[in-house]
Amino acid sequence: MKKNFIILLLLLGIQGFCQNETDSLDDQIYVETFGKCFSQVKPLLEVKNRDKLNKIPFCSLYQCVRYIQYVEYEEKIQNAILKRAVEIAGLLYKNETPIYLISGMNSSDKALIKNANLNDDNKLMYISVAECISSSTLDRIQEAVNNETTRLIKSKK
């Protein structure tokens, strides 16, 4: 009985120790901001005849960032997704949740640190889209979204 009690106590201690509050903030930002689906955007006509993409509504920034890599060599579709990402960045800004995409080594840690205080630097929320290896399409969408967010912040001042 004593062994069972000690094992139970150890398991409860491990479970309590493994819960990290900062992860919940990061998850909350991903779900509520980066993954927020805007119902007012219409489906992209450019992906209508694409087997894997025609079911994606492209209503969140997450969907745009994730699926733009599937059309790396199709300029027309890629430009439509980029345009949608910029549109969503504008909608996020209007909802007072401006977003800034970052990439590179330890970018998720940098985003976590910068998001610790969301009341600084115009309430920007930082999202890591590529930790180590980034593609040219990810760089393009990151640049487009960040340029739009920066433009909107500057126009407000």
Rank of each mutant, 00 (worst) to 15 (best):
N79V: 05
L8I: 15
N79L: 06
D120L: 05
D27Y: 03
N115E: 10
G13H: 00
Y70K: 08
K114I: 01
K83G: 14
D51N: 12
Y93M: 13
S60Q: 04
N95Y: 15
A144D: 08
L11R: 00
V86N: 09
E143H: 08
D120Q: 14
L124I: 15
N106V: 14
Q63R: 01
E21G: 09
K156P: 04
I102C: 13
P43D: 11
E96M: 12
S128L: 09
M105I: 14
F34A: 11
F5N: 13
K76R: 05
T33N: 14
F34W: 04
Q19G: 12
I29A: 08
L118N: 06
I77E: 02
E143G: 05
Q63V: 05
G16T: 14
A116N: 09
E75T: 11
Q40N: 13
T97Y: 10
R84W: 00
T22R: 11
D23T: 04
R151W: 12
S136A: 15
N20P: 03
E96Y: 09
D121E: 11
C18L: 13
V86P: 03
Q15D: 09
S24Y: 01
I81C: 05
N146E: 05
A80Q: 01
E32V: 08
D23Y: 02
V65L: 10
R50I: 12
A111M: 07
N119L: 13
E75K: 10
I88D: 08
S136M: 15
D139M: 14
F17D: 15
R151K: 10
I68C: 08
A116I: 03
E46T: 12
Y62A: 15
A116T: 04
S155L: 08
R84C: 06
C37W: 02
P43V: 14
V31A: 10
L91F: 03
F38N: 12
L45F: 09
I141V: 15
V86M: 07
C64M: 07
R140N: 10
A111S: 14
Q142M: 15
T150C: 04
K3P: 00
E74L: 07
Q69H: 03
E72F: 07
K42P: 02
Y100H: 06
I29R: 00
T33E: 10
F17M: 11
A116R: 09
N20R: 02
S39K: 01
N122K: 10
G90S: 13
E72H: 08
M125A: 08
Y93D: 01
K36A: 12
L12S: 07
M105Y: 11
L92K: 00
C64W: 00
S39T: 05
K3I: 14
R151E: 10
L11S: 11
P98H: 01
S60P: 03
V129Q: 08
L45D: 04
K2Y: 06
D27H: 06
E32R: 04
I68N: 01
S136Y: 09
N4R: 11
I88F: 02
K156V: 11
V71D: 00
E75P: 00
Q78I: 08
C18Y: 06
I81R: 08
A130P: 00
I81D: 00
K48A: 15
S24Q: 08
I56D: 05
A111K: 05
L82N: 07
V71L: 13
N20L: 06
V145N: 02
Y67R: 04
R50H: 09
L8C: 10
A89G: 13
A80C: 08
V47S: 01
V145G: 01
E74V: 00
L8A: 15
I99E: 09
T150V: 15
E46K: 04
L101W: 06
Y67W: 15
I56V: 14
